[in-house]
Design a protein around this nucleic acid. Sequence first.
DNA 1: CAAGTTCATTGACATCCATCAATGTATCGA
DNA 2: TCGATACATTGATGGATGTCAATGAACTTG
Lengths: 117, 117
Amino acid sequence: MDMEHPDCDCCRIDIRPELTEAQARPLAERFAALADPNRLRLLEILERGGGQVCVCELVEALPISQPTISHHLRVLRSAGLVDYEKRGVWAYYHIRGEALAELQAHLRGLLSAPVKG
Amino acid sequence: MDMEHPDCDCCRIDIRPELTEAQARPLAERFAALADPNRLRLLEILERGGGQVCVCELVEALPISQPTISHHLRVLRSAGLVDYEKRGVWAYYHIRGEALAELQAHLRGLLSAPVKG
DNA sequence: CAAGTTCATTGACATCCATCAATGTATCGA
DNA sequence: TCGATACATTGATGGATGTCAATGAACTTG
């Protein structure tokens, strides 16, 4: 019996989160993929590159080492935010719009609340 | 003279990121504030709570300790995603819609690209 | 003033993360 | 087959992060 918070003068109703831990975890993982300046810059390049951008272009564009670029691309890929296609020696990456749209939708949900008050 | 990447058969033009490090860093900080399941749940509660939600309600809603809730609220506040108002002993938190809208706008920018190819 | 309540801060600890040098793997050209 | 190129993986390291117990600060009430 944890009586950590028996009752509280200010509490109106007990607001339980509708978002479960199981739902929040993968969402947080995707946001975590956006939580790095270099990964944001990589995404911006991929967006401006249109459909397909080669890794070597990314390596040239940012002042970090090639293994670090590769690491960041792996993080973005694990989060489902980008995908790639191997052609010969080269790997062409592109943004996965569906995943970004899902994140955008979640932010929209958080914004539907009445403004301050 | 770093000759890390002299030239490359696949590189069309040199794509430079329009997003500077200085621009990307604060954006990444805000996304980082969203990169935790408990913080996402806190925001969802704040959204459903309308304008003002007391901290004690948040402490009751999530299975983590009060100091940890306080820590997460601090992170959200530092990122500008929430603000609070102290009334007596209580602190009422609310979402800062402008900050969330800015993040949403950035995602929209990444989505304006042509779909795959 | 004293005791209780709400919330923040501190300190400690384990884990995760960004980064690079070194190495590995696969492909292409000579 | 040999060397070069493109990209990924490994290992190591310094720094950031989530969590809690303990404590502190501010307010309210008796």
